[in-house]
Amino acid sequence: MRRTVSLVAIALFLLSIALMLHGCSKSQTEVAAGITDTFAPDLNDPKLKERLGDDDGYSLAVLYGSDIHGSLETCG
């Protein structure tokens, strides 16, 4: 069975990537309010690279989800 996946974890992960690599232009005050931006996964991992997707020249990304219905994790 697929392991627990945390929405918050992935949100932070992607946001961290955005902050570290994409140069998101939110103010530093906002960034500092976040919990951490020190997470540094191995971006050379082939599976992770596949998940991140190719850089095809896009200008803006909107990451989205829904229906977590109060749960930061899924059932066992």
């Binding site: 994409h22 998101c24 850089d55 803006l60 989205y64």
Partner: peptide, 17 residues
């Protein structure tokens, strides 16, 4: 390795949080 450090990213929830 991704090297595109150019695109801002937003995160939104479409409902039922």
């Amino acid at each position: 390795m991704r090297s595109h450090d150019e695109a801002p990213a937003l995160f939104v929830d479409a409902g039922n949080l």
